[in-house]
Design a protein around this nucleic acid. Structure first.
Lengths: 230, 230
DNA sequence: GTCTATAAACGGATAGAC
DNA sequence: GTCTATCCGTTTATAGAC
């Protein structure tokens, strides 16, 4: 048993499940591995959570805590503060990233684990995992979309949505601690593992991306098309 | 059986495994599902590939085909063409994306499936999956890093590497067809599923990001720090 | 070479003792 | 409430018939 026996079984189960689901994914993690790491009998899963899926739901429920309403609330304040004028792009980007970081539950769970968990939830192929992140997100995306469109009147709606897509994807990637090219190993990036520092690096990159001129979508014009033809 | 019987069993197995591993992940895909979809007996897996892991390796081996040396070769040509002068950022970005797209094997496999497979390989938590993408990538990253540093002398090495990290992550995210906020559904983005179009949208975004002023890393100065303090 | 049948282990879930 | 022992379907892998 990995954890101290002073903690109760339910908590130890949640801790172990959180760790193993995060590390290896849902399908690859058996209840036996979880109960072994937690040092509790197998049957405690059924008793406390009903099923494997119930355990996972509980893991996410604990991590998410009470529903975080500050996502749009923060944006509300910013827009009220601007008093009718568009909120600048850099403020929007910073607000979105801050909201993402603020998902961290204040409590026993480490911020790093939580963020990796969120990231995994998105990448997890199992059906239903994404459903823990429900409608509020669609609302927030829509609100931010409108804000970005007002801040960037030169861009088409498609461009704004695509750039938000890239933005969201990169935040998820960074928060999940992914590193497909092993760059953090190779170049020993100091700030890897510290989401705050990483996202501070990210912010000017994203802001500049949003402010870029519109993409040329015509098939013939792109330099990319030329390169692909070779 | 889903596929035509005219194709031989080995190929049908590879096709089915490629599809299902890509769709649901390695751990969540059983050999039975694969053999059922392929319309071949279960034992053919052991016969042709030895084990489940062997099958997956074969899937990746087929997809990767012969080692693709054009990754740095393309960059070589660009640098020779520039004749000592730094290769501009937009050309580098376009070259990198083109190389990523060019990973597509010319043959039966669809480009979309392949790209999603590559993306999944990175996100797949199972140990050893990333090992199919070996040292050549580290070389390419190093070469591009030097090229970007020469094109962006105002940036520190750390900034360049971080921005490449974001760049690579976003390409992987987009190529894997991920969509954590379901934005392609909600906003019915037409070009989703067409990597070329998507990456053409991505290019100006990334180029502007690279050209952004250096990130202010000091703890107190960032607007982010202020927001987090509230 | 190809496939049926089965082995051997593992999976999630539960009955029932304490 | 807590846990042992077990059920039973599923899994990967293989033995051996054709």
């Amino acid at each position: 048993m990995t954890r101290s026996d002073t903690t109760d079984a339910k908590t130890r189960l949640l801790d172990a499940a959180e760790h193993l689901f995060t590390e290896h994914g849902f399908a690859a993690t058996s209840l036996r591995k979880i109960t072994t790491e937690a040092g509790v009998p197998l049957a405690m899963v059924s008793y406390h959570f009903g099923s494997k899926k119930g355990l996972m739901e509980a893991v996410y429920a604990r991590a998410l805590g009470q529903r975080d309403t500050s996502r749009v609330g923060y944006l509300d304040r910013l827009e009220a503060q601007a008093g009718g004028a568009p909120v600048p792009v850099d403020v929007l980007v910073e607000a979105f990233i801050s909201s993402a970081l603020r998902l961290t539950r204040k409590g026993t769970i480490s911020g790093a684990v939580f963020k990796q968990m969120i990231g995994r939830a998105f990448y997890e192929p199992e059906a239903g995992v994404e459903d823990f992140f429900p409608t509020e997100y669609a609302e927030a995306v829509e609100r931010y979309k409108c804000a970005f469109m007002r801040a960037l009147p030169a861009l088409s709606e498609a461009d704004v949505v695509w750039r938000m897509y890239f933005f969201v994807g990169m935040v998820a990637y960074a928060m999940a601690g992914k590193d497909v090219m092993r760059m953090t190993e190779i170049y020993a990036l100091e700030e890897a593992g510290c989401p705050e520092a990483m996202l501070r690096r990210l912010m000017p990159f994203i802001v500049a991306g949003f402010n870029a001129p519109s993409a040329d979508v015509s098939p013939a014009a792109g330099a990319l098309a030329v390169a692909l033809g070779t």
